[in-house]
Design a protein around this nucleic acid. Structure first.
Lengths: 230, 230
DNA sequence: GGGAATAATAAGGTCAACCATAACATTATC
DNA sequence: GATAATGTTATGGTTGACCTTATTATTCCC
């Protein structure tokens, strides 16, 4: 269990894997794209991670985290989301920016600091974007939402979390009010992967009958929602 | 002035230079020792830093920070000491440990974060070890103390700051009560670089007539004190 | 002035994490 | 079953920051 010191690069690979794997193997190509490296580089790196027992790679099938790798990935993600909370709640930094800023800090955070930070923040359970924060033992209650891209026309749902990592994408979504807690009605879905049209009511103002927003399907995949029974 | 991204190693060299230079050139050997690298490696690195205009190296004379390098070094030190305050005051971590922990965080801290952190902490002026925190513009009021190793027998002084970086050394000093604010009377100084003997009154308890402590001269150099007029 | 300590330079080596290009293997799709 | 897409392996290259060993240059001090 001793998690000596893993390189920043190693931590980024493992974090990327936990972010894009739905409990199944991930294609190397996708991983490479997510990390902005070439498939060849990703292949090399995956081989090294495999040798260290952090992932298991089945040629032509994909990469999956081992138990050890999963533990590390949870830990890295925990550190990041705690820093996001700190940056957003305490330092009052930009909602769209804290993912990137926390990403730098996460690799420089000793276990004692992580735990003390969590206590200081009151053991928060989600980051500012709504994603769950793993407990020190690696457990967490997973979100039971679905991507906004899969919601039927006419349905009204509430945004639970936003899964994006790029500051630009987050800013784009924020400008349209798509933040955790807001309510969204799908008004129209264009054919051929066209955008969906939404009415967005900012959190806490569900009476307002907010503005109409067109959202590309790929962007809508980042937005996790649950249906509203009301 | 654009401080793009300098490597962690670069920042460590510049920080080491500002820490051990008394406004004069530093011998490469000393720098190498401080950073635990070989003189040959330090030489190479100094050449690179010189090429980047961060230091100026006069062969056989030593290295000095340029204005640009000084600015960066101040900034790095500022980041570190702010993190020390956060870790010590807010997260309530060990006094002896926060230097090392903050040292990791400092390299991962964006300028916006530094400024927001400083505001959050109430623009502190010193770190938990008593060393000054540079303002955002690089200015700070330097300490006017002298090393405890230079104090005459019989004198009573107050500890202003502790300049050590190793957790072990800091822990050793803490165990003997040598923290900022405490009062110290030099009882005896052994010849031939022998230890000095002190009476240490912890901060806020100057009536108590504290314990006697023997301290090696090299350790006493880390402790910055000012005389007490009382 | 000579020798010791220190500093500088040269040459060659390692390691992690990338890159490109090219060849080859496998899987998926028409 | 052929072809395209994707994945894998091989080879060779780069960069930063270290290392060792050896040689040469300078400075300091008796």
């Amino acid at each position: 269990m001793s998690v000596q010191h893993l390189s920043e690069s190693t931590e980024m690979y493992l974090k990327a894997l936990i972010e894009i794997s739905d409990h199944e193997a991930v294609a190397i190509g996708r991983l490479a794209e997510r990390l902005s490296v070439t498939p060849v580089s990703a292949n090399e790196m995956v081989r090294r991670l495999d040798e260290q027992g952090l992932v298991s790679h089945t040629p032509y099938k994909g990469v999956a985290l081992t138990q050890k790798g999963h533990q590390v990935a949870c830990d890295v993600t925990r550190r990041q989301r705690l820093w996001e909370c700190f940056l957003y709640d305490q330092l009052e930094m930009e909602w769209a920016q804290v993912y990137e800023l926390a990403c730098d800090l996460e690799h420089a955070t000793a276990p004692e600091v992580t735990d003390a930070l969590s206590a200081f923040l009151g053991e928060p359970k989600t980051c500012p974007h709504g994603n769950p924060i793993y407990a020190a033992d690696g457990t967490c209650t997973p979100l039971d939402g679905v991507p906004l891209s899969t919601v039927a026309v006419g349905d009204t749902v509430q945004v639970m979390a936003v899964n994006a990592t790029s500051t630009d994408v987050l800013k784009y979504l924020q400008e349209r009010g798509l933040m955790p807690g807001c309510e969204v009605t799908v008004i129209e879905a264009a054919p051929m992967q066209g955008p969906i049209t939404l009415r967005v009511d900012p959190a806490g103002e569900s009476e307002a009958g907010g503005k109409e927003v067109a959202l590309g399907l790929l962007l809508a995949e980042f937005v996790l929602v649950k249906s509203i029974h009301s």
